[in-house]
Design a protein around this nucleic acid. Sequence first.
DNA 1: CGGTATCAACTAACTGACCAGTTGACATGG
DNA 2: CCATGTCAACTGGTCAGTTAGTTGATACCG
Lengths: 192, 192
Amino acid sequence: MSKDAPARDAEATRRRLLDAATGEFAAYGIAGARVDRIAAEARSNKAQIYHYFGSKDGLFDAVFDDMCRQTVDAVPIDPADLPEYAGRLHDSYVERPWVQRLATWYRLERAGSGAVVPIVVESTRAKVRAVAEAQEQGLLPTRFSAAELLGLVLHLSGFWSGNVPEYDEVAGPASAARRRQVVVESVAALLS
Amino acid sequence: MSKDAPARDAEATRRRLLDAATGEFAAYGIAGARVDRIAAEARSNKAQIYHYFGSKDGLFDAVFDDMCRQTVDAVPIDPADLPEYAGRLHDSYVERPWVQRLATWYRLERAGSGAVVPIVVESTRAKVRAVAEAQEQGLLPTRFSAAELLGLVLHLSGFWSGNVPEYDEVAGPASAARRRQVVVESVAALLS
DNA sequence: CGGTATCAACTAACTGACCAGTTGACATGG
DNA sequence: CCATGTCAACTGGTCAGTTAGTTGATACCG
């Protein structure tokens, strides 16, 4: 049993810190996150954070990279059925709402740093290639370039995650099924 | 000449503070913005900020409200030509990039406060009405509700303002004209 | 096997910088 | 001379990052 739950388990502590930090950064962003809250939430201690991750920024990088790894392959692309692909992406955003928030904080607070996450670049490149091949086979229209088409699909998938409260106020509540349908149908319309 | 440039002009000072704060909040968000930087940039000082706006949050509210007033009527909706409307919205985002950033910070950092900006709600309501009327006249498809359609158009208008750096890296540079065309054509496709 | 040396994991308390917000004195125009 | 606009200096609290020390598991030795 010693392997299952050692009283002092570095890997488990690291994991708890990462999970707590994910919630904190998703909620408050980099500038708004509090290192003390993360340590408390993880039932650990600030010094551990600096031991494992070096700095607050280093912790965010680790959180973001971790999230990317979990996300990148979670929803494999299906170039032959982009509407359904968008629907599944939408589902994944509903299921894991912090993903979109982290990505948005990243874009706002890390813009211009020039640093990119290689795993995301690589996976995006692969998806563009897949779309380009489908275009060559006549499965997809060529009115948009492969990169443009992929970008539009990804953007539309996040339609319901990126609205200001004022819009929700006016639009009123929509059922989960209807929201998904809007995403699927709008992508389908793009491909006409 | 006393009216043109009085040595002590409360209104002008207020304006400088508002403009400086707009840049600061757009760049760093609410938590990241520094009141001292705003005061320095406005060639004023902190006490003025607290005199005119009460608090940092009050200053953000004033900035956001000010931006909304300037934006809401800047691009009037044309329900008979939504693609071109989206194109003009896109143009306005290119011209005034801080608008999208402020809106995003607002969404992330003020979510759940329940407070909404009345002027935005009202203008959105009017736009939904305009779209609904155009649908009744058969000018627009009814596959999406008026609110959904408006939401999709607004969302697509911001396509090029909301991408993570990794996407730009993969997609490579696109000309300003092409970017606009993608927005216009994607909205046109929605209406087919 | 019992004692102990060693090291990684862990912790509480501290520090120094920074920052939102305040104060009270001074300037200037009417 | 007073209303109002302006400002430098101050304050109290907060927060990222550090330090010095404790705990517990394991390896090593007599």
